[in-house]
Amino acid sequence: MKTPDPRGPLSSALLDALGSAPAAAPGLPALAEAAGTALEQTADIFRDEDVQLALFCLYELHYTGLDGVDAGWEWHPGLLAVRVRLEQAYEAALRRLVRLPEPPQATSAAVADALFTLTGNDDGPSVSRFVAASATREQLQEFLVHRSIYQLKEADPHSWAIPRLTGRAKAALVEIQADEYGGGRAHRMHSTLFAGTLRGVGLEDSYGAYIDHIPAVTLAALNMMSLFGLNRRLRGAIVGHLAAFEMTSSIPNRFYARGVRRLGYGDDVALYFDEHVEADAVHEQIAARDMAGGLAEASPELVPDILFGTAACLAMDAMVGGHQLAAWQNGTSSLRLPLPEPVGSATI
């Protein structure tokens, strides 16, 4: 994807370092120092533009890479050392953020019950109800821009977990992911459907096109998924995260589809949301019972982290949703930069 603009001393030092060849790596000492300073000085890591962008770029090396950055940086030990420092601080903040219920017994039924209760009690702010009833076209565009990084690589952060699971949990995860990736049909991939939605409302559909518009809190939710997905020790958390995603999706997506049609868009824009109403009603059952429940039965010691992943997903969803709704209620933009005027929308 395109390389983002830096947002402070840490992301500047990172992008400077990545501009050189990994063999020489002249910028690494300055980067390590900038990371230490940034972590010392951050007041709120979830909303720290500099730290979250730096972490996002470090993770992006494992996905599509950054334009102009040597692919050899992906496994550079000095760079990984910086990432681990940022990750440790971020994971600690996530663990402080959530309050976990008492862990259930490590049976599929008990874990599924606990996850349905946790997700059913979620009283986070409802962006979907706002979109259904009140959002303007501009606010819908902003909502889609917030979603654009994840949804254009939808399911990828959870796919890291596949080789780390076995048996029933693995079969369940693969069944869900196969559906996310279109069941063998590229045009049914959820990321492809989302690209159609973006085009339908006049937005760019290339991955990362709006990275500079997207605020830290949204990057924090993305970074959480990569943190959970790329660390095998957190496989319980990535499974819990996916379960939460699937278990809080069908009904909100019905509201999003309603909002899209209320604003006068057609099936081409609504298809992505319609698809998730049906798909995620299937996925949530598989995710709760077979994936999370299966993992709990195979590895009872992971039950607390399954709950952690679910609770962290709900908490970050609430934080990102709260950010958007607060901006819109104040009559301001939830993005860092104004969106360009859509092509063809100029007034005559």
């Binding site: 069941g183 069908s250 009904i251 109403v277 049906e278």
Partner: peptide, 22 residues
């Protein structure tokens, strides 16, 4: 549209015969 499907059992789905989470 998918291999494994969820069929509505509560009667309240808006996309019967499939489940929509209602």
């Amino acid at each position: 549209n998918r291999k494994t499907v969820a069929l509505c059992r509560c009667g309240a789905s808006s996309i019967k015969p499939y489940c929509d989470g209602t």
